[in-house]
């Protein structure tokens, strides 16, 4: 027992030492709230064109699923409200000295499916851009792509894949929450790099953005993983018959 405690202590020290090390090289980072004016107009239009089919398909799915299941709409309201709160919650990150926020879309994708997660992300980001000075209307397409499309589909895909490999609900939810958070920030880095890189600086710029995100998003991603795992554990305990999103059928 004592040996386990010592090992855990060493692991914790390693984690904090790593975070401090990354924090020491922390320069600047971006998040999925890209303000208007940052991306050129052409890229703004491009990301709008990319995300529009997802939004339309998501709205159509909401209409269809609502007819089949009466709990569907209340779940959309609950998860949407939770995603809104989670994605504008500034969490202070020790050692990095900055605040950042989780995404909340991974859990939405597990419970309601990735297309509906895109719709939830769209509503959330629009409200934040309009009233909370977070993001912009022109860059909304890019923000929806990184948070809704990449975060949502990645969270859903990871959850399904991990469950099919035979792991528990909690493990699958933890990994889905973790990787949807990291995926969102990686895609934000990628689309910023695509729009703003100079000649021959594509990979270095992307790598520097990913490294810059690390001090805040490594701990926040882990936190988001725990939130997702807790939510799925709660739903499975309180509503064993629950069968929506990625929890349908044999999964």
């Amino acid at each position: 027992m004592e040996a386990v405690a010592i090992r855990m202590n060493i692991s914790l020290r390693f984690v904090f030492a790593f975070l401090f090390f990354v924090g020491a090289f922390y320069t600047d980072a971006f998040a999925m709230h890209i303000a208007d004016g940052i991306l050129p107009a052409g890229w703004c239009a491009f990301w709008w064109v990319v995300v529009l089919p997802f939004i339309v398909a998501g709205i159509s799915k909401i209409k269809n699923e609502s007819k089949k299941d009466k709990t569907f709409k209340p779940f959309i309201g609950l998860i949407g409200a939770a995603a809104f709160i989670i994605s504008c919650l500034p969490v202070p990150v020790p050692f990095a000295g900055v605040t950042s926020h989780p995404v909340g879309v991974g859990i939405a994708a597990i419970i309601l499916g990735p297309l509906i997660a895109v719709v939830i992300a769209s509503v959330t980001l629009t409200l934040q851009a309009l009233f909370l000075a977070h993001g912009g209307l022109g860059t909304l397409g890019a923000d929806i792509f990184s948070m809704g499309v990449v975060g949502g589909f990645l969270g859903y895909g990871i959850f399904v894949a991990v469950r099919r490999l035979g792991f528990s609900w909690v493990t699958a939810a933890f990994l889905a929450g973790l990787l949807s958070d990291w995926g969102t920030y990686a895609s934000t880095s990628a689309l910023l790099t695509l729009a703003l890189h100079e000649v021959d600086s594509l990979l270095p710029m992307f790598a520097s953005l990913v490294i810059a995100f690390s001090p805040t998003q490594i701990p926040l991603g882990i936190m988001e993983g725990f939130i997702s795992a807790f939510a799925i554990r709660f739903i499975k305990n309180r509503m064993p018959e629950f069968s929506l999103g990625a929890m349908k059928g044999k999964l």
Binding site: F20, G23, A24, Y26, A29, F30, A31, H33, P90, P92, V93, P94, F95, A96, G97, V98, T99, S100, H101, H134, T216
Partner: peptide, 19 residues
């Protein structure tokens, strides 16, 4: 405390948002 001091030392506003 280390985070706050570190961000001040780096010339960043204390606990500023990553966004």
């Amino acid at each position: 405390a280390a985070g706050g001091l570190f961000s001040l030392a780096m010339g960043k506003e204390k606990w500023s948002g990553v966004d």
